[in-house]
Amino acid sequence: MFTSRTPSTRDFVSESTTITIGDSTADSMTKSQFTLMDSVYRRLQQVDDDRSRKALARKLKDKYERACKVAKKYPLKCILDQFENTTFDLAGKRVGPEHMKLAAITLLKNEYVNELDLRDNSLGDEGIFYVTDLLPHNIYITRLNLAENNIGIPGLKAIIQTVMDNILIVRLDISGLRDTQQLNLKCTKCLLLKWNNQ
């Protein structure tokens, strides 16, 4: 069972216990009653989190649509569908650098997205610059897939610098670089050192 001296301290003692929070004491309850109350509380928290996520997603969709209107671009459904997900998955959607800029502006304040899957989107160096500008401002993104995006030396340098400055990135895929013959060995060595030191 459960005795609590503070709201966060839990000690299982026996089959029946008294719950004390602060100076107030509740009646005795069994372990199963406490478990039921705890599961109800967790479910209510989850419902509240879902409501918060949906509310934020609505705001982000509106923000993206406004940014598209200002840029005189049509909002892409594949981007609008991603704002409630923890993985912003645009793999193979060919959004291009212009829409990546608009999506990056929208993702600045998104605390639910923790992975960007942008592989095979023809972002080029310009689109990569928008992604690397986003990452220092969004501390929740920890995984990044930029494979097959026609990335050249300038884009690679921007990625390396961003990853070196951002210790929160734990997974990065940049396979399929454009100028593999001209890759700057120094940048590649810096990236390898960063990953080996984690």
Rank of each mutant, 00 (worst) to 15 (best):
L76Y: 02
D62G: 14
K54N: 13
A55W: 04
I79A: 06
A55N: 09
F83V: 04
N85F: 03
K59C: 13
D62W: 07
R51C: 11
K59G: 14
G92H: 01
K72F: 00
K63A: 15
R94K: 15
P75I: 01
R51W: 04
V95G: 08
D62Y: 11
Y74M: 05
R51H: 12
L76E: 04
A57Q: 10
F88V: 11
M100W: 06
R58Y: 12
S52W: 02
K63G: 08
A55I: 09
E65N: 06
D62L: 13
V70M: 02
P97M: 08
E65T: 06
L90M: 09
D89V: 10
L76T: 04
K72Q: 13
V70P: 03
A57H: 07
L80H: 06
A71I: 07
Q82E: 13
T86Y: 10
A67D: 03
V70F: 03
K73C: 01
D89H: 12
L60V: 11
D49Q: 14
C68L: 07
R58I: 12
P75W: 03
A91I: 09
K77L: 13
A71W: 03
N85T: 02
Y64P: 01
N85R: 05
T87Q: 11
R94T: 14
S52Y: 02
F83N: 02
D50F: 10
A67G: 01
K59A: 14
E84T: 06
K73W: 02
K54M: 13
E84V: 03
M100L: 07
L90F: 10
T86E: 14
L56G: 01
A67R: 00
L80T: 14
K93N: 13
R66A: 02
Y64A: 01
G92I: 06
A57C: 08
R94Q: 15
K61I: 14
K63L: 15
D62P: 00
G96K: 08
Y64L: 04
T86H: 13
A71M: 04
E65D: 02
G96R: 10
K54F: 08
K61P: 00
Y64K: 03
D50Y: 06
V70S: 03
L56C: 08
D81P: 03
V70C: 03
Y74K: 08
G92W: 02
K54Y: 04
V95Q: 08
Q82S: 07
M100V: 10
R53M: 09
V95K: 03
T87W: 01
R58K: 15
A91L: 08
V95P: 06
V70G: 04
R51S: 12
D49R: 15
R51F: 10
E98S: 14
K63W: 02
L56D: 13
K61W: 00
K93L: 09
G92K: 02
A71Y: 04
L76M: 05
V70Y: 02
K63C: 11
D48M: 03
A57I: 12
K93D: 14
P75N: 05
C78G: 10
L90I: 12
T86C: 11
G92R: 00
T87F: 00
C68P: 00
V70Q: 07
F83Q: 01
